[in-house]
Nucleic acid binder design. Sequence first.
DNA 1: CAAAGTCGACCGCCCTAATTC
DNA 2: AGAATTAGGGCGGTCGACTTT
Lengths: 339, 339
Amino acid sequence: MSPNDDQSHSATTIFDVARLAGVSHQTVSRVLNDLPNVRASTRERVEQAIRQLHYVPSQAARALVTRRSRTIGLVATGLPDFGPSSIVLSFNRSARAAGYAVITSNPADIEGATLRSASEVLIRQSVEAIVLLAAERGVLDAFDGWELGVPLIAVASEPRGRGVRVSLDQYGGARRAVGHLQELGHRDILHIAGPAGSMDAEERLRGWHDALSDGGMPVTEPLRGDWSSGSGHRIGRQLLAERVPEAVFVGNDQMALGFLHATQEAGLRVPDDISVVGFDDVPESAHFSPPLTTVRQDFTAVGQELMSAVLSQLRDEDSPVMSAMRIPELVVRASTRRR
Amino acid sequence: MSPNDDQSHSATTIFDVARLAGVSHQTVSRVLNDLPNVRASTRERVEQAIRQLHYVPSQAARALVTRRSRTIGLVATGLPDFGPSSIVLSFNRSARAAGYAVITSNPADIEGATLRSASEVLIRQSVEAIVLLAAERGVLDAFDGWELGVPLIAVASEPRGRGVRVSLDQYGGARRAVGHLQELGHRDILHIAGPAGSMDAEERLRGWHDALSDGGMPVTEPLRGDWSSGSGHRIGRQLLAERVPEAVFVGNDQMALGFLHATQEAGLRVPDDISVVGFDDVPESAHFSPPLTTVRQDFTAVGQELMSAVLSQLRDEDSPVMSAMRIPELVVRASTRRR
DNA sequence: CAAAGTCGACCGCCCTAATTC
DNA sequence: AGAATTAGGGCGGTCGACTTT
């Protein structure tokens, strides 16, 4: 508002405000924290002084005395892929909306030691909770027997390890994908899975497997990719050199893209010669060649649920340990057709 | 190490450590901060005590007295797209390597007020610097005449506004892309640009424009997308309904994907009927149909340079205001061919 | 006179208790 | 007597000055 009245404002304290407003520092504290017993006129004078001095309360001082940093730590792997990035984005926004700042750590790998040291840095920043976004099976084991001192909330699709878990129903999503293929009359349905050890990969694999065996269809060994389009391409090449399945359920959209690439190189047409279903529904999948039938994951919801899990955990320690998982929807486009 | 010796460790203080080690709290502080004048044997005893108590120094208390939070704030827009996500990832890692934690804020829009309030939240967390990742022209204006109190470092490809700027040479990259097309003998080269107002979009547009006029070629009005593959698709549809240009330089890979989709719908073949060049080199572009010729941006380098700009700014206030911008490389794949 | 340690003030804020109106 | 306000003691560190080998 008014110009020329800032004095290197990192040095302005609650006492300066008090002096200017003609009250005690404690009264200023009261208005700062919306506590009662402050006359409206006094409050107004104080607020006026705050504005005039560009006063910003010191979070450090406040954290020191309240023992609440209003900060939560996020350990995230898998970036810059679309899914993880989307979850991080949504989580950051939800946290901010709840009045929390989030400190992010992106460890270089998912070794127990690396994860632990990333968390230690966060603990040192006195975060009030730690959120773990690392889809690998066993990452939670790294936290076993380690008294963090703060709640741990993880994105995990398997019911295992300590901490609170949040996820979407990968198994259910996979069943929908394969079910779609089955409804179209396909029986010979292969699966290009994500890396062994990824909880999501394993759950999708399980969904595919169960859908086939429940339908009395032959279950073959799944092929293993690493989520990258390159791996989808490579696997597709090898596979198609041997035989052409009726349909393929690919573990994510990137690998599906690589697989589509391989089909073209092999002179095959999708969906005429072979049906393909992906997983994730990244924004680009609508423009793949052909537009990809896939399973939509609501990453935004995951971020929001993470934050609400954090909040309920902060509120009382024994809130539910795993929230209900929504089943992702199938998005039918042009990469699948009736046999 | 040893079991059963943790006492709700958020309450452990430097005094507890001192007592256990049989020294004064000051001596503990010395070993904590690697200061001299501590006998090796004493140091060892203190470290032993620290381990035994699971002692973690309170960042809040330290920040309060040193006035250094060891935290830096990041205001990032554009997520979850690949480029911005990659920069954020790289920046986080570089910051961590330098001993800084980073608090991220992802504003919902790029209005001045929104940006400003996001920064205020960061200031309140007493960050030591603010990094702004918002490609829009004019976002820096929102900070004009506002005494932040901490250095401001921005990713910006245009030399404008306050603060330190870091970027890759968008203009140079665009010239390389268009130069490639020209070398292949194309003269009728259209441009599908990113949204008006995006600094990167404007710089790439300028590069395209200058390449054409320097080559004595006709410059038409650029088409405007919004970076999404959907917009590339829509624009492609409209364009191709009217006429088929020899070549198109598309502002990013996503829009290029959408455009490729449109060419297929129009029954055109790339690169036989029309050459296409993208920008970014997202990992998927190698598997587009056809594999995309594009310009590779080294996002990791941007993240690293951001952090080193922060450090030099923290070290002394008048370090260079804009670092040298590298020119992104051209990656030739299968979407372009000689006329 | 070094090196190794100890003491005590202070960073900016919140909380409880005491005081004033 | 009760509402409004003030005084003072930490929170957990760092740093300078001072004391002990």
